[in-house]
Design a protein around this nucleic acid. Structure first.
Length: 411
DNA sequence: AATCCACAGGAAGCCCGGGAAC
DNA sequence: GTTCCCGGGCTTCCTGTGGATT
């Protein structure tokens, strides 16, 4: 067959065709390079606090603060590895288990993961929590060693039963004979301690390290380093990296964002069969990332909010110059009937509109139209076309794709 | 100056699911 | 297992309000 012959080997040809990247992994934020630019002082600070562990003493517990993409995780993991390495050389056993509390978000899961890290086999559910706790304690205490537990995204534990685990871990030393435990907590939330139990607060926050956001110049250095590893030589135009850095710096200096931007720029360029990455590609990549983020937010919206958003889009497409709460509400009620869903009250819808506003999907502001009342004026903050497609992906809203709004009545 | 529209947005309470305590 | 409690989503009822209109 004709088609078959022209398409056979399609994957081979696509595989070969990676003219721009040398090692794409190096451009992901999960990659740990051997050097971490502009975090020397933080690394030194942490190292100073942790050095006692190499002398067999117990280092202070540490809380690390900083916004996303400031290198908290990568620096902690780096220093953990260095510590274990050095410990091995001078035969002081140190282990540095790493846990992400967004994934392991209950007392049970944390303890069972810790127990597993020390070779215990704990079922993922079933045991009473204190049995798991004892299991971990026993395993940890089997030989003399220093254990430094890294708890990433520790703020995700607050409010759950997580306060408990923090309290238990911070006191575990009094129950151990051979080993010593200390904790490194990592948080995005600068106000973390306000939410903590005061006992936990004082023991956990013995030392505090703050990671400040990178500025554009520092981001540039990071990108340069990674680009050297990730891209082939000479495929980046001169202003690509500075532009990526500048765009990411606008977003509170998020290195993760900067790296994503650079990598996606490369992908965009590749897809366009360009043999260099240009500023144009960066701008496209930026739009793509933004659009993907929004699409993701919209996709995970509760159904009622989706329906509400759909109403706004319909009104917007009908060409209303100003959309008010009342108009949205009447359209929304029609749509509810069309897909046979419960109708919420206007009070609630008003709140949902404000939520969408906070998410940056809508823009609503309160205006007074004098005799004609006070209302919210609502505008789409993002292009509706893409959003509409995402909304129609929802099974419950499929039928709406050919729904027609009644024509605007002319006064 | 008084009126009055079309809502905003606060307060209280209902309902329900899920986890902790008994 | 049952009971208790909590938080989130939601309704009901409410008071408040900026400015065009009267």
């Amino acid at each position: 067959m004709d088609i078959k012959s022209s398409l056979s080997g399609i994957f081979e040809s696509l595989l070969e065709k990676e003219p721009l990247f040398k090692n794409k992994e190096a451009l992901r934020h999960s990659y740990t390079p051997s050097e971490l630019p502009h975090r020397e002082s933080e690394i030194r600070q942490l190292a100073t606090i942790l050095t006692p562990s190499l002398r067999g003493e117990t280092p202070s517990n540490i809380l690390i603060y900083g916004k996303s993409g400031t290198g908290k995780t990568i620096v902690s993991r780096f220093i953990g590895n260095e510590l274990m390495e050095t410990g091995r050389k001078i035969s002081v056993p140190i282990s540095v288990p790493y846990l992400n509390c967004e994934v392991t978000d209950t007392q049970y899961r944390i303890l069972s993961n810790l127990a597993k890290a020390f070779g215990k086999n704990v079922p993922f559910t079933g045991w009473p929590t204190d049995k798991v706790y004892n299991s971990f304690k026993e395993a940890a205490d089997r030989e003399q060693q220093c254990i430094i537990i890294i708890l990433d995204e520790i703020d995700k534990l607050i409010g759950k039963n997580g306060d408990n685990i923090l309290y238990n871990l911070s006191r575990i030393n009094s129950e151990l004979k051979n080993s010593r435990v200390s904790i490194i907590g990592i948080s995005n939330d600068l106000k973390l301690t306000e939410y903590l139990d005061s006992r936990v607060q004082s023991s956990l926050g013995e030392e505090k390290v703050v990671f400040s956001p990178y500025n554009a110049r520092q981001l540039e250095d990071i990108l340069k380093q990674r680009a050297e590893l990730g891209f082939k030589e000479g495929v980046l135009e001169e202003y690509v990296i500075p532009l990526c850095a500048a765009l990411a710096a606008r977003e509170h200096g998020d290195a993760r964002r900067a790296l994503d931007l650079l990598r996606v720029s490369g992908e965009v360029a590749e897809r366009e069969n360009s043999d260099v990455v240009t500023e144009k590609h960066v701008r496209k990549a930026n739009e793509k990332i933004e659009a993907d983020n929004i699409a993701e937010v919209v996709r995970t919206l509760p159904t009622q909010s989706k329906l509400l958003l759909y109403s706004v889009i319909l009104l917007d497409e009908r060409g209303e110059k100003t959309i008010t709460t009342g108009e949205v509400y009447t359209t929304y009620k029609r749509l509810c009937k069309a897909v046979s869903m419960d109708v919420l009250t206007q009070r609630r819808i008003s709140d949902l509109i404000s939520e969408l506003d906070m998410l940056g999907i809508l823009n609503s502001r309160v205006v007074s139209k004098g005799r004609y009342g006070r209302t919210k004026e609502i505008k789409m903050e993002v292009p509706p076309i893409g959003i509409r497609a995402v909304l129609e992906d929802d099974i419950r809203m499929k039928k709406l794709s050919d729904y027609r709004l009644p024509q605007r009545r002319l006064i």
